[in-house]
């Protein structure tokens, strides 16, 4: 029993199906999704828009319910959101009325609110908060309000806040999607550093293939209509990543392969095809205006 628990994957998805029934027919967001994520694994999800990658992440986080199928964490079914699975969103998740340090300690405040913490635990927590502040390069920002920080700094706070209660699973929904390219590169190395330090299991949704390859040990490519897992790629790079690896032939080859597959799954074989289709519609509309 104990042994099987050790060997069991951290996250198990079994035949997950999700239907949004806002419309009469019901939109199938996810179908036949099977995925195992091991403890301390970094998995990235990519795919064309509408492939259900964010929905899948939210189902793991317990923010959405699977219509059918099993979602297991350590072999136990997910019943809703919980502090064992922290989530980092793209933006607007910080509490603007709380200073950086208060934001980071928010989960402790929830626990203290219920009298679940002893004073020594509170002290230990504030030590951890200080440590996270340092790791995230936020030591000078502890007393600032979120809207005094840059987008990149804000996301660091969001990550530190998510990490404070030592979650076993960290779910990230395009956390760097709103950041500029330079900041994003810094954040990539930061999140990899944190991943090594914290030994968490990370599931990371992105639309940026390069980001997916650079961060992930495996890249899960999802396809739309209906949302499903198409291919899972193992990233042929050493565990310790470095920015230069982005120019390595195996990195570029994988990137090309994944991009190609995304185009295929979204119904366009090539960009050229898309352009032709566009120019066709343009010429028709210009003919109309001439007529």
């Amino acid at each position: 029993m104990a042994l099987s628990a050790v060997r069991a994957p951290k996250i198990q998805l079994r035949q997950v199906r999700k239907v949004f029934d806002a419309h009469e027919q019901g939109m199938v967001a996810l179908q036949n999704v099977d995925l195992d994520v091991s403890a301390n694994e970094f998995v990235t999800l990519v795919g064309a828009s509408g492939c259900g990658k964010s929905t899948l992440l939210r189902i793991i986080g317990g923010l959405e319910y699977a219509t059918r199928g099993d979602v297991l964490i350590d072999g136990h079914g997910v019943l809703g959101p919980g502090s064992d699975r922290a989530m980092v969103f793209q933006h607007y998740s910080l509490y603007p009325w709380l200073r950086v340090m208060e934001n980071i300690k928010f989960s402790r405040r929830l626990q203290a609110n219920r009298g679940e913490l002893t004073s020594s635990e509170v002290e230990a927590a504030s030590g951890r908060a200080d440590a996270l502040l340092n790791v995230m390069g936020l030591s000078n920002a502890a007393d600032k309000y979120p809207n005094q920080l840059s987008g990149g700094m804000q996301q660091r706070v969001a990550i530190a806040r998510a990490l404070l209660p030592r979650p076993q699973v960290l779910l990230m929904d395009e956390p760097f999607g709103a950041l500029d390219a330079q900041t994003r590169e810094v954040m990539h190395d930061l999140i990899l550093h944190v991943f090594k330090l914290e030994r968490a299991t990370i599931v990371f949704v992105t639309h940026d293939v390069e980001e997916a390859i650079y961060l992930g040990q495996r890249v899960v490519l999802m396809a739309p209509r209906p949302g499903r897992i198409d291919t899972i790629y193992r990233v042929p790079l050493p565990a310790q990543r470095h920015q230069d690896m982005k120019h390595a032939p195996e990195f570029l080859a994988l990137k090309r392969e994944i991009l190609q597959r995304i185009r295929e799954t979204s119904g366009m074989k090539t960009d050229l095809e898309l352009l032709e289709k566009l120019s066709h519609s343009v010429s028709i509309s210009s003919l109309r205006t001439q007529g």
């Binding site: 986080g61 317990g62 923010l63 809703g80 959101p81 919980g82 502090s83 699975r85 922290a86 989530m87 969103f89 793209q90 933006h91 607007y92 998740s93 910080l94 509490y95 928010f106 989960s107 929830l110 969001a158 806040r161 998510a162 209660p165 779910l171």
Partner: peptide, 14 residues
């Protein structure tokens, strides 16, 4: 109030 603020609290066990 942005949904992300609510959901963040939910994933922290609020």
């Amino acid at each position: 109030v942005p949904m992300a603020q609510i959901e963040t609290a939910q994933t922290m066990g609020a």
